[in-house]
């Protein structure tokens, strides 16, 4: 047990940067992505060409942003089905309320952000304070948000303002703007999660809310906050979609729900809550997107792509479930073995 490997001569622990181990999720995701890119460059060069990438990367960016939102909720042991409604509502508000007029754009984006905050707070109160099951609460809120979607849009798609198309669909220094947004958001989430007091508490609460509560941390507030931050990210994704897609439909968010969960799981975040891996999540989004591109380029019918995604997901979970086994079972057995006096 007491192999004091990291001990310096004066008996204290020094942080050896070389000794930092990358998480298993990071290694898995990066390796898989690299392998996929190499396979692509051999068998489907078009999928990794500049043209191909700049066409597909914006979609990877969208999946990355909603994936980060879903990750925050999953970290708190939750599950956010209202992602679909959140994205769709942001899409229809930016396209319909602005009415194609650039001058109205920012006002309508502000309204979208306001709606996102309200939806997040409702989710947060239902799950964090009223202790409803996350799935039930977010099914309900999702339905309410779709009600709002139809109230705004009436089910008719409409194209967005030229300014939005420029902001979301344009390029800066050769990179699609949406990708830059995704990079910015990733850096922000990583910074807050890993280097601030708030983020460290957030992860501790997600990993064991009981222990965090016993240590006096405001568990419910943090759990509720996860839903608000998630909705804000969905909102950003929705606004970007309204600029990228020519005529976004009212159901734009539906197709993002499963990929969002898939990238979170592939990146190694446990669905039981705990540590989050933002950078791995984003790479997983690139991986998932590239997988579709590859399948498309080699002529796999669109239909079969979801099967590939499912297999990738099973593979990903399989890799991590080995780790769960090692930690989860001893915990259960240890607590059985001790004659604890409190149940």
């Amino acid at each position: 047990m007491a192999q004091q490997a990291g001990l310096t001569p004066d008996g204290s622990f020094a942080l050896d940067w070389r000794a930092i181990k990358f998480s298993r999720g990071f290694v898995t995701v990066v390796l898989s992505t690299l392998v996929l890119l190499i396979v692509c460059s051999v068998f489907a060069p078009s999928a990794v060409s500049v043209g191909g990438l700049s066409g597909s990367l914006p979609f990877a960016a969208i999946i990355a942003i909603v994936g980060l939102g879903q990750m925050l909720v999953v970290q708190q042991g939750g599950f956010d089905l209202s992602l679909a409604g959140g994205v769709s509502l942001a899409v229809v508000i930016t396209t319909h309320l602005s009415g194609g007029d650039d001058a109205q754009l920012f006002a309508s984006i502000l309204i979208a952000v306001g709606c996102a905050v309200v939806a997040g707070v409702v989710n947060g109160i239902l799950v964090g304070v009223l202790r409803l099951n996350a799935i039930i609460a977010t099914i309900g809120v999702n339905a309410l948000m779709y009600g709002a979607v139809f109230a705004v849009a009436g089910g008719v798609p409409r194209s967005t303002t030229p300014l939005m198309a420029e902001i979301a669909g344009g390029k800066t220094l050769g990179l699609p703007n949406s990708v830059l947004f995704a990079v910015g958001v990733t850096l922000l989430v990583s910074f807050v999660l890993k280097l601030t007091v708030m983020g460290r508490r957030f992860e501790a609460i997600g990993a064991n809310p009981q222990a965090a509560h016993a240590a006096g941390l405001p568990v419910r507030r943090y759990q509720a906050t996860a839903y608000v931050c998630a909705q804000l990210l969905y909102c950003l994704a929705g606004v970007l979609i309204s600029g990228i897609t020519r005529e976004p439909t009212a159901f734009q968010g539906d197709s993002l729900l499963l990929p969002s969960v898939a990238v979170v799981v592939l990146a190694g975040t446990s669905l039981l809550g705990g540590r989050g891996f933002p950078i791995s999540t984003v790479i997983a989004a690139v991986f998932l997107n590239q997988l579709s591109q590859f399948a498309l380029a080699v002529g796999v019918p669109f239909s079969a792509q979801t099967i590939i995604q499912a297999l990738a997901l099973v593979f990903g979970i399989g890799v991590y479930s080995v780790r769960w086994r090692r930690t989860a079972i001893p915990r259960e057995k240890l607590s059985n073995s001790e004659e604890t006096n409190n149940v």
Binding site: E203, A207, Q210, A211, H213, A214, G274, L334
Partner: peptide, 9 residues
Amino acid sequence: HAEGIIADL
């Protein structure tokens, strides 16, 4: 195990 430590950290 339930309240003292956080197993994942």
